[in-house]
């Protein structure tokens, strides 16, 4: 899908520039755009490394187990019928914890492991059941506590207080997650 979108963005731009006589500006944009991407990646690199470094300390200290325990009242209610010590619920908890901390790279393999466990206990292993739907919807919503990359980018562009948006982020996250889970619950109940 991205193949077509990417090609369409560029071809549309070239066509539009040709029709409106903005070829000079377009050439400049191609040259500076590529360089800007490197500036963007480098400016995010510092914050990204600092954050993954700090989270590594937390992980080695066992934060995943502690947070999983703290989240278990929520996960038990969202995934009823899974015993508290089952591998499925434990995998779901680890994935959720990684998402809360913003460990994107760790969350994906943990999430795949959780899907395998949910599949094992499903009555319809090759068709999404209610638990799988809830789990994937949880992963398509953002439950990250601190939006570090957005904050780093805001700081880079001279924001007065890069993390002042956090309360609004929590509010919007909670609202959209509630709508997602409620829609899933409603649609799954009717099936």
């Amino acid at each position: 899908m991205l193949n077509y979108i990417w090609a369409a963005l560029m071809l549309l731009s070239i066509l539009c520039a040709a029709l409106t006589g903005r070829m000079e500006a377009l050439s400049g944009a191609i040259l500076s755009g590529a360089a800007d991407a490197v500036t963007l990646a480098v400016s995010m690199a510092g914050m990204l490394c600092l954050w993954t470094g700090l989270l590594h300390i937390a992980e080695e200290g066992g934060v995943t187990a502690a947070l999983s325990r703290a989240l278990s009242p929520v996960t038990r209610r969202l995934f009823p019928g899974l015993p508290p010590q089952s591998p499925a619920l434990r995998a779901v908890c680890s994935n959720l914890t990684a998402n809360v901390l913003g460990l994107g790279n760790a969350a994906t393999p943990l999430g795949i492991a959780a899907m395998r466990e949910l599949q094992k206990v499903s009555a319809t292993p090759y068709e999404a059941d209610r638990r799988m739907v809830f789990f994937v919807v949880l992963n398509t919503a953002s439950v990250q506590l601190l939006p570090t990359m957005t904050g780093a980018l805001r700081a880079q562009w001279g924001s007065r207080s890069p993390f002042d948006i956090v309360p609004a982020v929590w509010l919007a996250s909670a609202g959209s997650l509630a709508v997602g889970l409620f829609t899933a619950w409603l649609l799954e109940r009717r099936r």
Binding site: M10, I14, C16, A17, A25, A29, I30, G33, A34, D36
Partner: peptide, 16 residues
């Protein structure tokens, strides 16, 4: 990012 920032910048400069 190199591919996508360039595309976004082109879209902006072209008036699209």
């Amino acid at each position: 990012l190199v591919g996508l920032v360039t595309a976004v910048r082109m879209l902006q400069a072209s008036g699209a």
